[in-house]
Write a protein that binds this DNA or RNA. Structure first.
Length: 553
RNA sequence: UGGGUUAUGGUGUAAAGGUAGCACAACAGAUUUUGAUUCUGUUUGUCAAGGUUCGAAUCCUUGUAACCCAACCA
């Protein structure tokens, strides 16, 4: 029986609210600013918000928090929608804070009329100077005492475009000595003569986050507004504004954002990686963005499982990348078709196999019989992985070595008789004999070997480009290192193999098809791939007990 | 040194005064035509010090540590 999963603290709050009759149903929202691509940290918030909506039969809106026209673009809006859909969630309503600009403006006027907001002519520096510090209270300035009528006129003029950027701001009149810095008369409207991706040039004043977010939640009747820990200090202002405006009381709850080893999760830093060319774009498979994970071959299912496993709490966390990879492998192990591909080929010649002979062998497509079988051709000359041969075998080595026997996956047992080296010492061919009675499925040889290796038939192998991705940073915690986080960028995060050889069944591979290249890892067709030039991305390696063995010695 | 938030194995996350559990990681073994998968087992923990109690991760006291807050960003 499935064990009862304990509730996270937000589910506990919701169940209590539902039980007490505070709400009959709940509403949540996912509120990204369209100023970048979604990353794995957003996936946690998406799974939380949409998951809650699904679990408690409530609605979950997608709301673009687009109050800053200079950073936001339609490209980002589109990518965000695509990523959420890919993750497998459907929003109730697609909304934009910019659609509330008229309402928000009325709210601001309302605040002025209540004597709770004023227009301030100070410069940014002057405002900062009078704001005080966490340990020292701030001070009032002369603009704070303007009359309601004057404030109304000035604010109308701000809206009408009579002032330049930065000349004036509208501030909430709260308390310049408040212990919470955010309550020291926060700026709620600023002047920006900028083109907005949706409202165009209609506005030259834009509300700040604090004057838009809670109000938008309220307008949408969001019951549980979930955000990350750093917004805790904002909650007091969030509640203050809702109270003074007398609008629907949404409530804010905060959880700890996701941090993960070997990556960074801030949009600003990711943008830097893109702009400075450390990666090829937001969907470069080394990025922690959802579009990058998708391109690299991750399944949406695995990311959802991951988000479920990491839980939701209020304490700072630092999750092992290996947990994500575990979720991925667990899923891919079920789904990925098994095929053979040789990344670093060396020729294997079966000396006792008849010249020109070809036979068709059958191989399973995966551990699940439902995945079926496919045919493979086999002949005298094959390609095998260079690293599967060792001239002087190590301890516990059970792959190919002089005099050693291994099985060629789904084919025959072969014995290494000799090998050829060129002048530079590189092995150019390995000569084997095969055991005709050892054919897979009808093995009567009675021989058992410890090693099984993959191969492709030289007669019909197809060349492919194979991109091997590794973590982007060498440090577990790039931000924790002294110096710039970019100093820890892994110089070997991408290795491109141009002459990989894959079995011919892969010729028909379509974009985002997922495979397991037997013994090498999970791979997926890249969007750059075409029938004339196959390109595969390594999604993740297989667990490798041999590599560990080697490391130990 | 103002205010706020948080402390449970290496990493996450449970335990609502009553057996510190689960997952990942690590380690050992079995199975294996992928050194994969699967299976079995092992190691490791309540921030500290006091107190209340038959009994404390949980309650109380006093400390300690980490994180957040001084953008006309969100």
């Amino acid at each position: 029986m499935s064990e009862e999963k304990s509730l996270n603290f937000i589910e506990e709050i919701i169940e209590a609210d539902l039980q007490s009759g505070k709400y009959n149903s709940i509403s949540t929202r996912f509120p990204p600013e369209p100023n970048g691509y979604l990353h794995i940290g957003h996936a946690k918030a998406i799974c939380l918000n949409f998951g809650l909506g699904l679990k408690y039969g409530g609605k979950t809106n997608l709301r673009f928090d687009d109050t800053n026209p200079v950073t936001e673009e339609t490209e980002y809006v589109d990518s965000i929608k695509a990523d959420i859909r890919w993750l497998g969630f459907t929003w109730t309503d697609e909304l934009y804070t910019s659609d509330y600009f008229d309402t928000l403006y009325r709210y601001a006027v309302d605040l002025i009329n209540k004597g709770l907001a004023y227009v301030d002519d100070s410069s940014a520096e002057d405002i900062a100077a009078l704001k005080g510090t966490p340990t020292e209270p701030g001070k009032d300035n002369q603009f704070r005492s303007r009359t309601i009528a004057e404030n109304l006129t000035l604010f109308t003029d701000m809206k009408a475009g009579k002032y330049k950027d930065g000349e004036k701001v509208l501030r909430a009149k709260i308390d310049m000595t408040h212990s919470n810095m955010l309550m020291r008369d926060p700026i709620i409207y600023r002047i920006k003569h900028a083109h907005h991706h949706r409202s165009g040039d209609k506005w030259c004043i834009y509300p700040m986050y604090d004057f838009a977010h809670g109000q938008s939640d309220s307008i949408e009747n969001i019951t549980h507004s979930i955000c990350t820990l750093e917004f805790i200090p904002h909650r007091e202002l969030y509640d203050w504004l809702i109270d003074k405006l007398g609008i629907f009381p949404s409530h804010q709850y905060e959880f700890a954002r996701l941090n993960m080893t070997y990556t960074v999760m801030s949009k600003r830093k990711l943008l830097q990686l893109v702009n400075e060319g450390h990666v090829t774009g937001w969907d470069d498979p080394r990025m922690p963005t959802l579009s990058a994970f998708r391109r690299k071959g991750y399944t949406a299912e695995s990311i959802r499982t991951f988000c479920d496993k990491i839980g939701v709490a209020k304490r700072e966390n630092f999750i092992d990348l290996s947990l994500l990879e575990f979720c991925l492998r667990e899923d891919l192990n079920q789904k990925a078709l098994r095929v053979m591909a040789v990344l670093d080929p060396v020729k294997l010649i079966i000396t006792n196999y008849e010249e020109g002979n070809t036979e068709i062998l059958s191989s399973e497509n995966g551990p699940d019989e439902a995945l079926g079988k496919r045919n493979l051709s086999f002949g005298k000359e094959l390609w095998i992985e260079r690293e599967d041969f060792m001239e002087a075998p190590a301890k516990k080595w059970f792959r190919l070595a002089p005099g050693n026997m291994v099985r060629l996956k789904s084919a025959y047992i072969v014995k290494c008789e000799s090998f050829i080296k060129d002048a530079a010492g590189t092995i150019t061919a390995i000569h084997c004999t095969y055991i005709p009675e050892s054919r897979s499925g009808s093995d009567s040889s009675g021989i058992s070997v410890k090693g099984t290796i993959h191969w492709v038939n030289a007669a019909d192998a197809v060349t492919a480009e194979i991109r091997l991705y590794d973590r982007l940073f060498t440090s577990e915690n790039p931000l924790g290192e002294a110096g710039d986080f970019k100093d820890t960028i892994n110089p070997n995060s991408l290795q491109i193999i141009t002459n990989g050889l894959v079995e011919p069944s892969l010729k028909e591979a379509t974009a985002e098809s997922r495979y397991q290249f037997i013994r090498k890892g999970y791979f997926c067709t890249d969007k750059d791939s075409s029938p004339t030039k196959l390109v595969f991305n390594r999604t993740v390696t297989l667990k490798d007990a041999w590599a560990k063995e080697v490391k130990k010695n």
